[in-house]
Design a protein around this nucleic acid. Structure first.
Length: 117
DNA sequence: GGTCTGACCGGCG
DNA sequence: ACGCCGGCCAGAC
């Protein structure tokens, strides 16, 4: 029965779940970046993964992927929403000013999980 | 089962 | 200042 004698790593530690949890904790009217989430999870290099995780999360309800933008404050993932304007619309509805897919006062609305949490 | 891509970021030329 | 490239993890073909 020696199938796999792995060093028993914490496989339960999933990137996806953690990403969802953090995104869900993003306060209304606030935005964060993929890198910030990745950094909070301890893998700032895997920022790509965060975006990929959102891809699977965009179907979930309590996962405000629209509050997650790139480092420039650009709504890079807006194209993945139901409509290219859904992301911007939602943000504006929450009080976040978005012009040309760019979050205004991004630094002001920026919510760093590593800091807030 | 191997390979590639993916909503990024940061470093280097 | 700008462009390119490498890196990380996980899912899809």
């Amino acid at each position: 029965m020696k199938k796999k004698m792995a060093p028993a790593p914490p496989k339960e530690y999933r990137f996806f779940d953690d990403v969802y949890a953090v995104v869900r904790l993003i306060p209304k009217g606030r935005v964060t970046s993929y890198g910030a989430i990745a950094a909070y999870l301890g893998t700032k290099m895997s920022a790509r993964m965060v975006g990929w995780a959102m891809n699977a999360a965009h179907g979930l309800k309590e996962v405000p992927a629209h509050r997650v933008v790139n480092r420039q404050g650009l709504l890079t993932g807006k194209h993945h929403f139901e409509t290219p304007t859904t992301m911007q619309k939602r943000l504006q509805r929450e009080g976040v000013r978005v012009v040309k897919d760019q979050v205004q006062d991004f630094a002001k609305h920026f919510w760093d999980p590593a800091k807030e949490l």
